[in-house]
């Protein structure tokens, strides 16, 4: 009961903050809401006993990536959103596409959760034993055994992105 209460409170807060992120007037404020949002998501992970993921969420997203967002927003110093020529028809069309995507997502989520609800307990995590409190070691174990290839591929992808970023930056510096 308490857990459910906590979850729904958190979920409401997270959604509310998500709305604040997109609706805040000042770009810096909206980044701040994003940070709080991420922190609350981390709390959500903690309630799921996924402490490692929670801490990484804080470290990487709140502590790293959003700082860079903030950096950019601060430097650009947008007092208000730039006014751009907007084509009402384009707006309508893109709205249609987005609405379709959201609808499809909802259908998928609902149907899968219905099916998952029918599934037996314990298989939700995708492998044998459910996480207990000491999940860091298990996570590492799983990552480097069952998911070794996707893991390495992902890291390769990140490396490529990094090299690409440096090359792009360098080219501008050189000339």
């Amino acid at each position: 009961m308490a857990e459910a209460l906590l979850f729904y409170t958190l979920a409401a807060l997270i959604l509310g903050l998500g709305v604040m992120v997109v609706s805040a007037r000042s770009a810096v404020h909206s980044v701040l809401f994003l940070v709080v949002n991420f922190l609350l998501v981390a709390v959500l992970y903690v309630t799921l006993n996924a402490e490692f993921v929670a801490v990484i969420q804080v470290l990487v997203y709140a502590g790293g990536i959003v700082v860079l967002y903030l950096f950019v927003v601060m430097l650009v110093n947008l007092k208000q959103a730039p006014e751009r020529f907007s084509d009402p028809r384009r707006l309508a069309r893109s709205g249609l596409v987005l609405g379709g995507v959201v609808l499809a997502l909802i259908v998928v989520v609902v149907s899968s959760s219905l099916r998952a609800g029918a599934a037996p307990e314990g298989t939700l995590s995708g492998f044998g034993t459910p996480f207990t409190s000491g999940n860091t070691e298990q996570l590492g174990w799983v990552l480097y055994t069952s998911y070794l290839i996707p893991f390495e591929l992902a890291s390769m992808l990140l490396l490529v992105a990094m090299v690409g970023a440096i090359v792009l930056a360098k080219r501008h510096l050189g000339e």
Partner: peptide, 16 residues
Amino acid sequence: MTVPAPRASTSQFDTN
């Protein structure tokens, strides 16, 4: 990860 550039770049980004 971005590498901080201590030297001023002459690219079109730094016009401020």
